[in-house]
Design a binder for these strands. Structure first.
Lengths: 240, 240
DNA sequence: TTTGCGCTGTCATATTTATGTCATGTTGGG
DNA sequence: CCCAACATGACATAAATATGACAGCGCAAA
């Protein structure tokens, strides 16, 4: 058997609420429950933080000055890159309407105020468990290449492939964003995380390492160079 | 200097409202803002006008006798041909319900009555801008040729075509400006960018490279030479 | 604590690809 | 039939990317 003693990395939770008091309350409760807490006071901050920090879950207040929670929710769900981040709406309105509209727009759960910290934590965990299962569910197969998120393993034609952490994330990113060109800057943002300052050429090097790793058979040209634009992962071989 | 006097074609806006007074008010405001205005007094007229005139945007009253705005909205969004036309709902109901239902059904924005002409114009422009941006990401298909901006890929009959960055931009320019002649100077400006000094003959060379690249089958004469004037991209083959 | 090893990011250098210009061949209209 | 306009292939150069090497770092085993 394998070493399953892996430490679960702390989940990052972003709290979006215009009232500092509520943010503090939530923050304390979530922190005590072992989460990593981020905060934003409005939709703009929230959006920036989501791009930068890629939180695992967003707690989103329904009513906010300026862009409302619902609008932000829709915007997030419209963008492919943020669409899969689970959202829990918080609302003081006890009406069914809000609940339905929120869920329709893609919220994963809905917590009416007032709520107890216990209930909050329980719902958060429930949503994380659910989406966790879904996100990690099926391995991604492409030709002979199998990417198994559960086992954190990549194999080609049965042979297990050795990838460094960065190459693993890079491959995961590509597999979940196929047939589309990404600039080096974008790749740095999505694979390395928002606020790193790195030479863009670093991407080239990791691309090369990834290519080398998966080039066991003839599986090289999945990762394609698009001159002047960036890189693209494509299942459809570009040759005849 | 060059002839940069390109005329922005007026956007066509369809107003759908059963009250003539409101139609007039909207019409005047939109006309003053430089839009081309169409009108319809009920859902049937509206539907016919949308099919016939392909407006760039529809202003749709929520409450109308007979088929309501919401029903028309749903119908339009169901039909592939009209699904992409942006719709702004107008409503007297200030309730969240309407807003949510409208947005859920696919409306692009929602303006509660009463509203100022200024707000109307601003929202219309905002929606048109957003839709315009999104349109840039849509693949362009012309015969067997597919131009996919997101994948940064051009293919003919399924086969991927190899283009240099400049040829790619040149093709993109032509695809978004079809059926019109552009001088070499104009093409230099649009494709190379304003401040380059290059021999105009350079355009010829790139035109040739583009032609060669897309001439896999018989797809050559999309790019047509107009003696003494420049070049034109035309989908309708000019043979025979 | 020390040692060793795998990972990373950065360079300098090699390799590939794209670009603009030129010389020369073709074409079309008057 | 002639001339101006356009097409084409070749080429030197510039630009972008690939590659191999390397040193610092963190972590885990000894």
């Amino acid at each position: 058997m394998n070493d399953k003693v892996e430490i679960m990395p702390k989940h990052r939770i972003l709290i979006v609420d215009d009232e500092a008091a509520i943010r503090d309350m939530l923050s304390i409760a979530l922190d005590a429950a072992g989460f990593n807490v981020l905060e934003a006071a409005n939709a703009q901050q929230a959006h920036a933080s989501i791009i930068d920090n890629q939180p695992d879950l967003v707690l989103l207040d329904w009513m906010m000055p300026g862009t409302t929670g619902l609008e932000l929710l829709r915007r997030l769900k419209r963008d492919e890159l943020t669409a899969k981040i689970p959202i829990i709406m918080l609302t003081a309105k006890a009406e069914e309407d809000s609940k339905i509209a929120g869920l329709d727009a893609g919220a994963d759960d809905y917590i009416p105020k007032p709520f107890s910290p216990r209930e909050l934590i329980s719902r958060v965990n429930a949503v994380l468990r659910r989406v966790g299962r879904e996100a990690l569910k099926e391995p991604i197969t492409i030709g002979e290449l199998i990417f198994d998120p559960l086992g954190h393993r990549v194999s080609i034609a049965g042979e297990s492939i050795n990838l460094g952490p960065t190459e693993y994330r890079l491959l995961q990113f590509f597999l979940t964003h196929q047939e589309r060109v990404y600039s080096r800057g974008q790749i740095l943002d999505y694979v390395w995380g928002g606020n790193v300052y790195l030479d863009e050429r670093t991407v080239d090097v990791h691309i090369r390492r990834l290519r080398k790793a998966i080039s066991v058979a003839g599986h090289e040209n999945y990762v394609q160079t698009v001159r002047g634009a960036g890189y693209r992962f494509s299942a459809q071989m570009s040759n005849a």
